[in-house]
Amino acid sequence: MSVRKQFRTALCGLALTGVVVTTAQGPAAATPVVDGAAKVSAVAAAEDAAARSMARSLADSAWRAEAGRAVAGGKEIGLKALADTSRTGAAASLVADVAAADSSVLAAKGLTASTGGLLTVTLTGAVDSRRAPLVAVAPSDDEAAAVTAYDTQGRAHALDPSRTPDVPVYVIGIDGDKAVEAGMKVLDRELAARGVATAATPAASPATTTAAAAGTGFWTSRITSVRLNDDKEPWIKGDAEIFSIVSGFGLDGKVRVDTVTHPYLNNDGTTYYPNQILVNWSQYKYNLADVVMMEDDGDTNYSALAKAIATALLTIADLGAYIPLVDPVVDAIPSSFWTDDADFVDAWYTLSRETTGTRDGAGGNGRFTFDRYWVSAL
């Protein structure tokens, strides 16, 4: 999951509590400080390797000053872009390590190289201090009591989440919005490849397309407002990356899945008014569909998620009456996706084309307000 703007602010509440481990030998040896034999995800390991490498590179004062200017004011920028545009020797040595870390992140999330780099960096803490900076990564454990940060010698320090640091702290994270956008394309494409109709499926033939959609337009369900009680995102990790999986039976009677991203849905306890289309009813046979809302917690492998959902849904046949698909979708999610991965947020059963007004999710965590919206053909 990305380390978003709220984490940058929250990290101002951290303090250096002391050296925990000794200097690492290099990026390949990077190992986050974890409790016992806790498993470290591939994404967390890549972020950690990039953080160690970035920390060592900041021993160069010219590069440190350049990096500080680039992220001044809390700006979040791509780590690869930052290193690539510098002419300092320290940045040049960092480029290869960042490329390797980005490649590992993309592979772990089931994304292609065309997605581009996902690692980001920002600066917080005592940004005006002349002390050597630290480089930190948000912990993968939502309940972590400390944040690991590295100094310019590669030594790891534990940061206390309850106290303010007196040193500048660079934070390495993931561009979550970019990852989710790319992930939805992978999900659509791979579900379609496995036989589940999606937005990536070739358009239906005129014979199976409704007259309304083919001629004058089509009806949709539009989200006029949405609110979450809990976005499944701990405060230390910042903004949530929310997406929905809409499922039902297509015009051919086979299961269909459409994905919708909600990039505006950053915080729980806040009502948003997106006027966003959730369901295009011209694609569905029964004028009924289900919605499962999820949050990408960082390690989501979209290819694996597509495979799991397709395997579950392709066993369901159209028997002439609508069958709710929420439970098969939720049950298909691998158990590893319930840790620091794609979190279940809430679900809405059997939305209809006529659904309007406010609908609470089945789990009581989310609330949508809908209206019917006609999309006219051009």
Rank of each mutant, 00 (worst) to 15 (best):
A204E: 13
Q276G: 02
D331W: 03
N267G: 06
T209V: 11
W338F: 00
S244T: 10
V147A: 11
E47M: 13
A240W: 00
F249M: 13
I323F: 14
A101T: 08
A45V: 02
Y373H: 14
A126T: 03
D252Q: 15
A203T: 10
R367H: 05
I333F: 02
S61M: 07
V255P: 02
L251D: 06
A145T: 07
A113D: 15
K307N: 07
V330N: 02
P165H: 01
E181G: 14
A108K: 10
G154V: 04
D128E: 08
G110V: 12
F368H: 00
E241L: 05
G217T: 05
S225K: 02
N266C: 09
W374V: 04
V147S: 04
Q276E: 07
P161R: 06
A145K: 10
T224P: 00
T164Y: 04
C12D: 10
P202S: 07
L134K: 02
A37L: 07
A203E: 12
A158Y: 09
G26F: 06
I172N: 01
A156N: 05
G26L: 09
S352I: 13
S61G: 07
F344N: 06
L82M: 09
L159H: 05
A30S: 00
L111I: 09
P234H: 03
E190K: 11
D341F: 01
R87M: 11
D48I: 12
A240V: 09
R69Q: 14
V226D: 01
L251T: 14
D102E: 14
V121S: 01
I245C: 11
A342N: 15
I172W: 03
V257T: 12
A182C: 05
E181M: 12
D102M: 07
A28Y: 02
A199L: 07
L16G: 11
D327V: 00
A158W: 09
D166C: 05
A113C: 15
G366Q: 04
M1E: 07
Y150M: 11
W338R: 00
A92K: 15
T152Q: 14
R130I: 00
Y349D: 08
R87I: 08
A44N: 12
A15I: 02
D252M: 15
L134T: 03
A59K: 12
K254C: 08
N365D: 11
L79P: 06
A126I: 01
T115A: 03
G238A: 04
R194S: 15
K5N: 01
T216L: 10
V329F: 01
P139C: 04
G13M: 09
D230P: 08
G78Y: 10
E233G: 02
I333P: 00
A144N: 11
A332Q: 06
E66R: 10
G116P: 11
A146D: 04
A377E: 12
V260R: 13
S244D: 13
V43P: 03
D318C: 07
T164R: 07
A182K: 08
R163I: 09
N229K: 12
T198E: 10
V33T: 04
I172R: 03
T259Y: 01
R64N: 08
K237Q: 06
V21T: 15
P168H: 00
A83K: 03
A92V: 15
Y273E: 06
V20A: 10
E181Y: 06
N301F: 04
G269F: 07
E190F: 06
R64T: 02
G173S: 01
I309W: 03
S114Y: 02
G298R: 04
R372E: 09
R4M: 05
